[in-house]
Design a protein around this nucleic acid. Structure first.
Length: 562
RNA sequence: UGAGGCGUAGCCAAGCGGUAAGGCACCGGGUUUUGGUCCCGGCAUUCCAAGGUUCGAAUCCUUGCGCCUCAGCCA
């Protein structure tokens, strides 16, 4: 079993209980699920929950899970999304085998089912305008009124529907409706529209159709056609379940999938709707769907998240029916936990400050051994050059040491990781008072970072030989929104006003080990003492290295310092 | 109630009549050549509220309260 595997969760959820019952009662002899995205946007972490659930269930019960595109609205759907969705599901580690399907594959069958409904007197062509239809539908508390076209003869309906298909009417002029109950308390059942006219070019069927089936008619039949046993969806479709069942009953489909609803995922400090995510992309508040600040799968991937960490996250949050807002700290925790064991360590000095080792020979270069991963001996080690002029982190030096501070300050001794103990002897400033360099002496008897006399040093800091270090750009990412609930905006403001102005800080003068410059795009590692980073998939080159911060290391000193 | 769904810790979430799992967060302490990791300890006498049934209730019943979904020719 893999880390982050759905099956890793010891406790089962209510959906598994339902499946167990269906298997035990003999209602089903196998399990078939499906992940049914509409190709009108990129997948996000909320979809990951559904993907892991559906594919995980199939795996657990030795069944199968289909990837089916719900492509019934050509005006919103694009091939770019079809491609990104497949890439993202695969990246998460799932395989749909031969079962890549499109609702549009069933357009012919769906049309036949519509004819059947008409013949049974269960559907009719309605001429009401969109506005009239809305008025006739009634409200939440008042029943609707029956359409004047509701009782057309089967023959007339057949002819009209055929004309709709033949393109004899304009968009909006006619629709096909299921004849159910205009007085139903469930608005979904008030003669729902099941076909509308739309003169759009479809990405798969081209211009073959000018009428397209609606979700409620398409989804249940697609599930049934594919032999899906358990159709798992989110809670907002609960009301649609009556219609799901009604359609299958009405066409007398022998196989009856069972719809089960669970609560969708919400994360604090971000938004999780394709509409809003699309707005962020279109209005350039982010660089694209794969901007590392986006909660999209592609954004997380570019940020440096691993499929294992995302899967682990989805298994930890559970599956239930209560509305929830999960703390994004849990997602970050899952990444740290995964990377702590897997990621090699390397040194990068984010805000470089020159450190001169006064008693180290001018032109000498000493090679020192550095462990690649203290959590994994098999990761081995590498050699780091040590010279008279080094770079250390600006944050690791203070002109006066506050309480509990054990980094570098005049008179203080610290360990340069993997190298030597050094004692600070002084520092220089420019005319504005900015620190320009720090000076220290090293103890040659502490090579490797161990003292012979057993004296201890509290602080260990990282460093890089100035003449060997390479330059890099590092993008420090923080939460996209500065408020836990971005939707909670004051009067006259929108979620956009809650964007975090410091969600991206670009560091242009970062010093890195040579190996980091030579890494390929998408290389994930830990920058010693600062965080986990990933070389940018799009912008990183050996000549011009670019790293993204996936997540910082936990920092208990920061808490004391503030 | 027009119809439906849901209320267990700051955030998720087990629990299915036998006396509140686990994770994240948070707070202590120990180890440590990452102020990381790891380890140890703390963190709901109470489950939305109030009644009732029962030897025993988060679990069953009753009545309230609160939150969410639905009035696209979107999915």
């Amino acid at each position: 079993m893999l880390k982050g595997d759905y099956m890793e969760t010891g406790t089962s959820n209510f959906i598994e209980e339902i499946i167990n019952d269906d298997l035990k009662s003999g209602k089903n002899s196998n399990v078939v699920t499906r992940f049914p995205p509409e190709p009108n946007g990129y997948l996000h972490i909320g979809h990951a929950k559904s993907i892991c659930l559906n594919f995980g269930l199939a795996k657990k019960y030795n069944g199968r899970c289909h990837l089916r595109f719900d492509d019934t609205n050509p005006s919103k759907e694009e091939d770019e999304y079809i491609n990104s969705i497949q890439e993202d599901v695969r990246w998460l580690g799932f395989d749909w085998g031969d079962h890549l399907h499109f609702a549009s594959d069933y357009f012919d069958k769906l049309y036949d089912f519509a004819i059947l409904l008409i013949k049974e007197g269960k559907a009719y062509v309605c001429d009401l305008s969109a506005d009239e239809t809305r008025e006739y539908r009634g409200t939440l508390k008042e029943a609707g009124k029956e359409s004047p076209y509701r009782n057309r003869s089967v023959e007339e309906n057949l002819e009209l529907f055929s004309n709709m298909k033949a393109g004899k009417y304009k968009e909006g002029e006619k629709v096909l409706r299921a004849k159910i109950d205009m007085k139903s308390g469930n608005i979904c059942m008030r003669d729902p529209i099941i076909y509308r006219i739309q003169y759009s070019h479809h990405h798969r069927t081209g211009d073959k159709w000018c009428i397209y089936p609606m979700y409620d008619f398409t989804h249940c039949l697609s599930d049934a056609i594919e032999g899906v046993t358990h159709s798992v969806c989110t809670l907002e479709f609960k009301n649609n379940r009556d219609l799901y069942d009604w359609v299958l009953q009405a066409v007398n489909f022998e196989h009856r999938p069972r719809q089960i609803e669970f609560a969708r995922l919400n994360l604090n400090y971000t938004v999780m709707s394709k509409r809003l995510l699309l707005q962020l992309v279109r209005e350039n508040h982010v660089s694209g769907w794969d901007d590392p600040r986006m909660p999209t799968i592609s954004g997380l991937r570019r940020r440096g998240f691993t499929p294992e960490s995302v899967r682990d996250f989805t298994s930890r949050i559970g599956v239930a029916k209560a509305d929830n807002i999960v703390d994004i700290a849990l997602l970050e925790h899952c990444l740290r936990e995964d990377l702590n064991k897997k990621a090699n360590r390397a040194i990068a000095v984010l805000n470089p400050l020159k450190l001169i080792i006064e008693n180290f020979p001018e032109n000498e270069e000493l090679m020192l051994e550095a462990k690649n991963n203290p959590e994994d001996e098999s990761a081995g080690s590498r050699m780091l050059p040590f010279t008279k002029e080094l770079f250390i982190e600006r944050d690791d030096f203070k002109t006066e040491a506050p309480k509990k501070y054990f980094r570098l300050a005049p008179g203080m001794e610290v360990r340069l990781k993997f190298a030597f103990y050094v004692t600070c002897t002084g520092f220089s400033t420019d005319d504005k008072g900015n620190i320009t360099e720090v000076r220290a002496t090293y103890d040659p008897d502490t090579k490797g970072g161990w003292s012979q006399d057993g004296r201890k040093v509290k602080g260990t800091i990282h460093w890089l030989s100035a003449k060997h270090a390479k330059n890099a750009e590092v993008r420090i990412y923080d939460r996209l929104f500065q408020t836990a609930n971005p939707y909670d905006a004051p009067e006259g403001k929108t979620f956009l006003d809650n964007l975090n102005p410091e969600s991206l800080t670009t560091l242009k003068n970062v010093k890195i080990e040579e190996s980091l410059a030579n890494a390929e795009p998408g290389y994930i590692c830990q920058f010693e003492r600062t965080g986990y980073f990933c070389s940018d998939i799009k912008d990183h080159t050996h000549e011009r290295p670019v790293y993204n911060r996936a997540v910082p290391l936990r920092d208990s000193w920061a808490k004391i310092d503030n």
